[in-house]
Design a protein around this nucleic acid. Structure first.
Length: 755
DNA sequence: CTCCCAGT
């Protein structure tokens, strides 16, 4: 029955066998690597199989994978344990330590006494164990309890697996509710979505329906309301939802009446699962974790803002002068002011568009801080942005996740950081680059980990992409006026009269860009639909731009797109561009992986951090480890014989991958605008068309356009582009941070008695 | 519909 349900997975295979050896087990979440002896072979199995023990018999459904280091493995999606039935198998099972209190000696005694009935005795009449010499009555009951617990864990895992709920979630349910977990869930399936997490409201609702839960049951409405709040935070960027909107949405989604919805919302607030307060005249309902995160951000920023200057203005002047001499640099007046502000305030925001010299300022600040004996941490919200910061400053920049030492969790919605208030970051100065992409949950985690006596510098361009997650941190902080903010306005990178610069300004002010003249650096080419746009983008890269401007299509032109999917999405563009710029040819080795063909000469991007992979410099004189999410390079060689692929990054570091590691790579002729943030290119070519308004916002177009140093070509629908320019976006985000920063007492930041 | 993170 169970195994019929697994048809949703491609190429699902079932295997059965005895667990030979537990190779690895994460006891927190049940992730296990083990060797399973089927009749034919010994297979390495990975998957969430909690409480698995050597000697147990398992049926597994999943698929075979090829691990780069450990070779052929079976990734189990579903499992069933079958209890051993023969004395010999039972002995092995009990001796494995599956039941707390039984090891080999005790297992032998039990099996000698009860034979094939051993497990029945353990389950139904554990007191009978006391017949055995050496087992007291108390010990017998203790063993019985341990066995019941083990079986209880199995029963909730098996029960939930029927509904497609993963064993790792089931394990959490078991930890929370114990041996009686199945009854708890049958009683209120919404506990899965609610208290446990990791299960969607829809799945819980499906289970509830099967259990016969009423449509207007309060637990269903409460869970539905929390789902609406979470969904709005995740997909719309709101940190709260106005009460009236929440009632309306709950009524239409859940099919209940207004009074029922209101009652459930009030109840959640009373139970402190949500927080309700008045913001901007609206009654605002927050999900508790988001409310807490926003509060921590407000509180920490206000506290940091109280810190005094690090040195006198005279000292600062001389420190700056010295640093600039060392770096053979000069700073403009506003840039110098920014460095000064960093020395005088516990927290500052440094904001400005591309080319306004943010990086130079950050470099100077790092120099001075280190000179003063302070340690500095530099981090950014994305791998790409962190890498860019690393290249430009020479400092060891990381992702914020990495800085906070993210630990593993089985719940995608919860992140678990090793660094927090009890184990704060060691560094004295924390610099966050691309802070516009910082969402409230991550900002909350970051603020918790910053020591009260540390200093924080937020660097970003509030006109660039809003975070994917909830909140409008940088915008709110700047608008609040509660944090010293330095706005950089002078552009050094391009001439101010450049059409790229002019149009970037127009876009951000909601005005339509202008184009036309032949000697401009900004062009728009109308095409009737996304497919035509994609074809024109390809033509531009292949022939038009190389012949008109002499650009190298692979190294100087970067194609960007808002989306991955669709005819003008990154995936399809990569196919078209690969065909145009690096077509199949005899003598050019290639290799298919998934639905992508990789070929010698391809432009590729590393899409997940790999801290261990080795690289060698082209001359072979230097070596090191680590290739990071967002690194771009070219396939130099594809060696079918050794199943290896060589990629050269930045023309200097050579990395060899096994074929199985191709999942870490993607073609990079085209990348998403999000991924491009923090990078710049000579020429940017981008299809523009009508798409999800949540995505097609003015900031997206601004970010794309400002990636270009010399040339921008937009291709597609003019009305689509105009809609994008007119879609301001973040004004539509409901957030409470600005209000809280402006009301410092509410943020709880004022020390001592009220003033 | 866009981003970040992980064990033998």
């Amino acid at each position: 029955m169970l195994f019929e349900r697994t048809t949703v997975f491609v190429q699902v295979v079932t295997i059965e066998g005895v667990v030979e050896e537990i190779i690895y087990c994460n006891y927190q979440n049940g992730y296990t690597v083990c060797a399973v002896d089927t009749a034919q072979e010994v297979v390495t199995v990975t998957g969430y199989i909690p409480y698995l023990c050597e000697g147990e018999n398992v049926k597994l459904a999943g698929r075979f994978t090829n691990h780069p280091e450990y070779g052929r493995q079976f990734a189990a999606q579903y499992y069933e344990k079958t209890l051993p039935t023969t004395s010999a198998a039972i002995l092995r099972y009990l001796a494995s330590g599956v039941v707390k209190g039984i090891r080999l000696a005790t297992a032998k005694k039990i099996v000698d006494t009860f034979g094939d009935d051993s497990l029945t005795v353990l389950m139904a009449a554990p007191e009978r164990l006391a017949q055995i010499k050496g087992i007291s009555k108390a010990k017998a009951l203790e063993i019985g309890e341990a066995y019941a617990k083990q079986q209880g864990a199995q029963s909730i895992i098996m029960f939930l697996q029927q509904y497609g709920v993963s064993p790792s979630v089931a394990l959490k349910v078991f930890r929370r509710f114990g041996a009686d977990a199945v009854n708890y869930i049958k009683d209120n399936p919404f506990l899965l979505a609610d208290e446990i997490g990791g299960v969607s409201f829809q799945t819980a609702d499906r289970i509830a329906l099967a259990m016969g839960v009423e449509k207007n049951s309060i637990s269903r409405i409460k869970a539905g309301v929390k789902y609406i709040l979470a969904h709005n935070a995740m997909t719309n960027g709101h940190t709260y939802v106005p009460f009236d909107d929440l009632v309306y949405t709950a009524v239409s989604m859940l099919g209940v009446d207004i009074a029922e919805a209101e009652r459930a919302i009030r109840r959640l607030s009373l139970e402190q699962q949500t927080h309700t307060e008045t913001i901007d005249g609206n009654e605002a309902v927050f999900l508790m974790p988001v409310y807490m995160a926003e509060g921590i951000v407000a509180k920490k920023l206000c506290a940091l803002a109280l810190a005094g200057p690090l040195c006198s203005p005279d000292q600062a002047e001389s420190l700056i002068g010295e640093a600039l001499d060392n770096m053979a640099l000069e700073l403009a007046c506003e840039q110098k002011k920014a460095v000064l502000a960093a020395l005088q305030n516990g927290v500052i925001v440094l904001t400005g568009g591309p080319g306004t010299g943010k990086t130079t300022i950050v470099n100077t600040i790092i120099q001075i801080m280190q000179k003063m004996g302070f340690s500095v941490a530099l981090a950014a919200p994305t791998g790409r942005a962190a890498k860019r910061a690393r290249e430009l400053t020479g400092a060891c920049a990381k992702t914020i996740h990495r800085l906070l030492e993210i630990g593993y969790t089985d719940d995608e919605n919860v992140q678990n950081f090793m660094r927090d208030e009890t184990n704060p970051l060691d560094e004295d100065v924390i610099i966050i680059d691309e802070a516009s992409m910082l969402d409230i949950p991550l900002a909350g985690s970051l603020m918790r980990a910053i020591r009260p006596d540390a200093r924080l510098i937020l660097v970003g361009d509030n006109d660039q992409l809003a975070p994917v997650g909830p909140g409008n941190l940088l915008g709110d902080v700047i608008a609040s006026g509660a944090v010293a903010t330095i706005r950089l306005t002078q552009i050094y990178r391009q001439a101010a009269e450049s059409d790229i610069v002019q149009n970037a300004h127009r876009i951000i002010h909601g005005e339509r860009p202008r184009w036309g003249s032949r000697d401009s650096d900004f062009f728009f080419m109308p095409r009737p639909d996304a497919a035509c746009a994609a074809a024109e983008v390809t033509r531009l890269c292949q022939t038009r731009l190389p012949s008109s401007y002499g650009y190298d299509p692979l190294r100087q032109i970067q194609v960007l797109s808002a989306m991955k999917k669709g005819p003008a999405g990154v995936k399809n563009l990569n196919k078209l561009l690969q065909q145009a710029l690096n077509p199949a040819a005899s003598g050019k080795a290639e290799r298919a992986f998934g639905d992508t063909v990789y070929r010698e000469g391809d432009k590729v991007m590393q899409i997940k951090n790999n801290y261990d992979i080795r690289w060698e410099s082209m001359a072979g004189s230097e070596a090191g480890t680590g290739v990071f999410n967002g690194d771009m390079g070219f396939i130099e060689r594809l060696d079918a014989e050794n199943k290896q692929i060589t990629v050269v990054y930045d023309e200097e570091r050579r990395v060899t991958y096994d074929f199985a590691q191709l999942e870490e790579l993607d073609l990079a002729y085209a990348v998403t605008v999000h991924k491009s943030q923090g990078s710049e290119f000579d020429a940017v070519v981008m299809p523009v068309y009508h798409a999800a308004p949540m995505l097609m916002r003015r900031k997206l177009l601004y970010t794309a356009v400002t990636r270009a140093k010399k040339l921008v070509v937009l291709v597609g629908s003019e009305s689509g582009m105009n809609a994008c320019v007119e879609n301001a976006g973040e004004q539509g985000r409901f957030t409470g941070l600005k209000a809280r920063l402006q009301n410092r007492e509410a943020a709880g930041a004022l020390p001592g008695p009220a003033q």
